[in-house]
Design a protein around this nucleic acid. Structure first.
Length: 811
RNA sequence: GCCGAUGUGGCGAAAUUGGCAGACGCACGUGACUCAAAAUCACGCGGAGCGAUCCGUGCCGGUUCGAGUCCGGCCAUCGGCACCA
């Protein structure tokens, strides 16, 4: 082996190439209609004070590999980056230290940017955006106004989580096990007037849209479950006592209208309006009131904690009439019926619903079997496949499916009910009583009501304030800025007040991928040309934790923008994949309190960005949670060092080239395919094997090295560029080169090794000329002397031959 | 409780989807180099046995010439949802 040229010094090489890419503006995307576009997206980070952690680069490196590969394949690639910078940590820091959140955010962004740049991602930094930039949130506000104008934003009284110690409203994510995440104080529900977005209007569209996109199945399933579509019927029961109100009708929602004959009582939720309307007719109103107060006091947490133990109170003096058979049944209230779903009232069929059964069992209510197949004295029979209707008049003898159809037709005809679809999806609570968010651009006028701020006056900027703490009543700190709050009505000019609530963190991230297409446009949120060229996003990778919030919210906004003609495709993302979490070395989730956090800077200091990137991709299956191993990362450094030292093994022997050709071709095929399937671990393993093979031979030709460098470049861009340049493998750098192709015919070797089995057990291995078919392989094996010896004296009963793999001889 | 995923060496994991289980890497062991160590290179590395062989992919059963992979029934771990009628 020749003397080594010089040592592998990642720090020098990486700084050098990062500068070259910057100076060259190598990854800036420009619209070019002669080229096919590829838009690759990763979730833009929240620039937290802790800096980057090793989880971020997993997603980023994966998409960087795809982006770099696409460029080599000739695509015009958009791979942008930005900052999701509104949010609670910056605000909490501001409250504590009386520093403007913008200041700390800017410092964090600077730190994150340095860290990301060190890793060598091929982001288009010229398109960097920041959700807290007024030039950005101007358009977030603009989209909100569109929603408002279309009636999709409305104000409603909804319960929020209120921390009794901090005296602040908390987001659901901040409530952990019923107490405040920060101070451990009790969290109670408090009704507040909030801006809501009518995402429920889009439930069906968001569900249908899933059919047209390539999301991994897990994501689709979670979104479907979250939207929670169910088909059933609304049925009107008459309540004679309520004749004067509601026309004496109480409507329920049920997915089992077929069991209508089995309804033995009704339950309304404690919040149901009918209770107050019937107050004079309810004989035990005091008891009912006490129960309602008890239910209201319970937090959501308590309600679910005691989910299995049913409670309730009968509405004495009130009965309902089952429309199908005229039977009078009692009416109860219980908190197992939710006011927010269906009609807030149910018909209880204890024989065929587990919750109703538990309730009936506890309070001694009658249980009538109407679907045969189980033992309703022991528990509810809920099977809908095999049962047959009984005790059900004209439904007797029908299957559940037939009975459903028949009863719905009957109800519809008589005007007693109709088919109904319900969704679990709730409207989106959109306001926060916080400072560090986009101001909601509305003005409340005593004469005109809520009025939009005119587009020409956007953005409504956040004013500078001193104190970021919410008021005692839980209002946003913006209420303490009278000169900002007091304004005039844009419609009538009368004195009016601005909305002081701000938007949630999800707002800015619901459309950022659109802004990336045209980030510096002052006149529109995106130009038609940019949007038509770049959208939709071809491939979006991100965490599973965003499946039901960010991913659903952004699909909602995009679909809305499509409906009003502002964007030209209905779905924003064609393909969505997810990465697994990186755990600490002890296999637990990385966290400061566990003391198992790995700082990427330390790793890069030791082994360089390339080895860090390679390790993040090699450590295990991309979609699974994997514990970090610094030793394992060092192994990847060793691999790159071995690649570096291939420079000492260069030769121009025809023979060496011949011998490596088949492996090189196989590696191109394997790596090309595995990168696409996000199977980075096996792609890198294949390159390692290829390098091991070269070491076994002791030399490599320029062409075979060239192929390896191209394949490895997306994962380890710096070292591969440097070797490429050192060895003058081309007059242009790799990032301006082309992805290697493979020669299918060169994949075939002269001979293949197959296994010879006797009765399913491997007895020996045999080299067989490749290209042999089934019969030829079989004959070849049976004529082999060693094989003959193995089956000597036995009767061959059957031979199974699989060309290129195996011959199994049954004796 | 419901939905989803996973279960393979000391560890992270592979296995062309029914065809040689453990590729690749970590850790470990032996040797070479070295005064020595580190680094590097070479070899070994599921278990039992000197051996030919036998056993082995969470457990029990089945289909098949052949099962990590398919079918039936369990167990365990992780993630999401959770009184949604």
């Amino acid at each position: 082996m020749k003397e080594r040229i010089f040592e592998y010094k990642p720090a020098e090489i990486e700084a050098k190439w990062q500068k070259i890419w910057d100076d060259d503006r190598a990854f800036e995307a420009k619209i070019d209609h002669t080229k096919k576009k590829f838009y690759g997206l990763i979730e833009f980070p929240y620039p937290s004070g802790n800096g980057l952690h090793v989880g971020h680069p997993r997603s980023n490196t994966a998409m960087d590999i795809i982006a770099r590969k696409r460029r080599l394949e000739g695509y015009n690639v958009l791979f942008p980056i930005g900052w999701d910078a509104f949010g609670l940590p910056a605000e909490n820091y501001a409250i504590k230290n009386k520093v403007h959140p913008a200041k700390i955010t800017a410092a964090n962004v600077k730190h994150f940017k340095e860290q990301l740049k060190r890793i060598g991602f091929s982001f288009d930094w010229s398109r960097e955006i920041n959700t807290t930039d007024p030039d950005y949130y101007k358009w977030t506000q603009w989209i909100f106004l569109k929603l408002f104008e279309k009636g999709l934003a409305y104000k409603a009284e909804v319960p929020i989580n209120w921390c009794t110690q901090c005296k602040v409203g908390l987001a659901n994510e901040e409530v952990v096990n019923g107490v405040c995440e920060r101070c451990g104080g009790d969290v109670v529900r408090r009704v507040k007037s909030q801006w809501m977005l009518k995402i429920t209007d889009y439930a069906q569209k968001l569900l249908d849209g899933l059919c047209d996109v390539e999301f991994i199945e897990k994501v689709k399933t979670q979104q479907r479950n979250w939207i929670g579509r169910s088909e059933g019927a609304e049925v009107n029961f008459t309540v004679p006592a309520a004749k004067d109100t509601d026309n004496g009708i109480l409507t329920v929602y049920t997915t089992r209208p077929d069991t209508l004959f089995g309804a033995t009582y009704m339950v309304v939720s404690p919040e149901h309006p009918i209770i107050d309307k019937l107050r004079d007719r309810i004989e035990n109103f005091d008891e009912v009131t006490a129960y309602r107060a008890e239910a209201a006091k319970k937090s959501d947490f308590e309600r679910t904690e005691i989910a299995k133990d049913k409670t309730g109170v009968p509405l004495k003096g009130i009965t309902a009439v089952n429309p199908v058979n005229g039977k009078e049944i009692p009416v109860w209230i219980s908190d197992y019926v939710l006011i927010s779903y269906g009609t807030g009232a149910i018909m209880a069929v204890p024989a065929h619903d587990e919750r109703d059964w538990a309730f009936a069992d506890k309070f001694g209510l009658p249980i009538i079997e109407v679907v045969k197949g189980g033992d309703v004295s022991k528990g509810a029979y809920t099977d809908i496949e095999s049962g047959v209707l009984v005790n059900s008049g004209f439904l007797d003898g029908l299957s559940v499916a037939e009975a459903k159809k028949t009863i719905i037709e009957w109800l519809t005809e008589k005007g007693l009910g109709h088919r109904k679809v319900n969704y679990k999806l709730r409207d989106w609570v959109f306001s926060r009583q916080r400072y560090w968010g986009e101001p909601i651009p509305l003005v409340k006028c005593p004469h005109c009501g809520w009025v939009s701020v005119p587009e020409s006056e956007l953005p409504v900027k956040l004013p500078d304030i001193e104190n970021y703490v919410q008021t005692d009543s839980g209002e946003s700190p913006l209420v303490n800025v009278p000169e900002w709050v007091h304004t005039t009505c844009p419609k009538c000019g009368a004195p009016a007040e601005r909305e002081t609530d701000t938007m949630p963190q999800w707002a800015g991230s619901s459309w950022y991928f659109i802004r990336y297409c045209d980030p510096h446009n002052d006149d529109e949120f995106v130009s038609k040309e940019a949007m038509d060229y770049w959208l939709p996003v071809d491939w979006y990778n991100g965490g599973m934790e965003h499946t039901t919030l960010h991913l659903l919210y952004s699909r909602f906004w995009h679909r809305f923008l499509y409906d009003i003609g502002a964007v030209s495709c209905p779905e924003p993302y064609i393909k969505r994949t997810s990465h697994g979490m990186i755990l600490g070395e002890n296999g637990e989730k990385m966290s400061k309190s566990r003391g198992n956090v790995i700082n990427p800077d330390d790793i890069i200091d030791e082994i360089g960005a390339d080895a860090f990137r390679v390790y993040e991709m090699f450590m295990g299956a991309f979609d699974q949670a994997i514990p970090w191993s610094t030793q394992g990362a060092r192994g990847c450094y060793r691999f790159l060092e071995r690649v570096w030292k291939l420079q000492d093994m260069l030769c121009d022997s025809e023979e060496v080239s011949q011998e490596l050709r088949a492996s090189a071709n196989a590696t191109v095929k394997k790596v090309s395919e595995d990168y696409e399937k996000l199977k980075f671990n096996t792609a890198i393993a294949a390159m390692m094997s290829y390098v091991n093979e070269i070491y076994a031979k002791g030399s490599v030709t320029r062409e075979e090295l060239r192929i390896l460098l191209l394949l490895l470049n997306p994962a380890a861009p710096h070292i591969t560029e440097e070797i490429w340049q050192q060895q003058a493998l081309s007059d242009k750098p790799i990032y301006k080169s082309s992805w290697p192709t493979y020669d299918e015919s060169a994949l075939v070797k002269d001979e293949v090794e197959i296994a010879v089995q006797i009765c399913g057990k491997v007895r020996m291995k045999l080299m067989v000329p490749s290209g042999y078919n089934k019969d030829e392989t079989e004959r070849f094996a049976l004529e082999n002397d060693s094989v003959k010896k193995l089956i000597d004296g036995k009767t061959v009963r059957k031979v199974i031959a699989v060309p290129g793999r195996i011959v199994n001889i049954v004796v």
